[in-house]
């Protein structure tokens, strides 16, 4: 498998690795994937009162493309409004990282992780709507 320079860069120098306090009301956590499938992504966002993502962190178990996809996602999330973050599509990640067809699922997982993190944040803030969308691993 040959990797694009951008995948290699994110793999070698991943941005925003780490964890936020998942019990913090301003933090949304999304965990997607499964160990038996070979990839699990945890993506977390911290959102301010204006609905802006002020911090994003990730931890990923998976191939280099999965690590790069989640690292890129945190870069894009930081500073954006959550409504804009909802618009991020996996195809943009594919394009940015030049992912080959066999690695497209990594970008899909990153998009799912973004949506899951936002859903978790929204669930914390709209208790009336507490639905089953959140995909925390508890």
């Amino acid at each position: 498998m040959t990797y694009s320079d951008k995948v290699l860069d994110h793999y070698n120098n991943p941005r925003n690795v780490g964890s936020l306090d998942k019990d913090d009301p301003n933090v949304g956590t999304g965990i997607v994937g499964a160990p038996e499938c070979g990839d699990v992504m945890k993506l977390q966002i911290r959102v301010d009162d204006q609905g802006r993502i002020v911090d994003a962190k990730f931890k990923t178990y998976g191939c280099g493309s999965a690590i790069a996809s989640s690292s890129l996602a945190t870069e894009w999330l930081k500073g954006s409004k959550i409504d804009d973050a909802m618009q991020i599509r996996n195809t943009q990640i594919v394009e940015e990282l030049a992912l080959p067809p066999v690695k497209i699922h990594c970008s899909v997982l990153a998009e799912d992780a973004i949506k899951a993190a936002i859903a978790d944040y929204k669930r914390k803030h709209e208790p009336a709507e507490s639905s089953t969308q959140a995909q925390g691993a508890s």
């Binding site: 690795v17 994937g33 699990v40 992504m41 990923t60 178990y61 799912d112 691993a137």
Partner: peptide, 24 residues
């Protein structure tokens, strides 16, 4: 491992076999 959510969970005492994963 420092980048792995699984490793983190195990350090926190979570049993990975009991987690409900979103199998894709």
């Amino acid at each position: 491992r420092a980048m792995s959510p699984l490793y983190e969970m195990v350090q926190e005492g979570i049993d990975l076999s009991k987690v409900k994963w979103t199998v894709h």
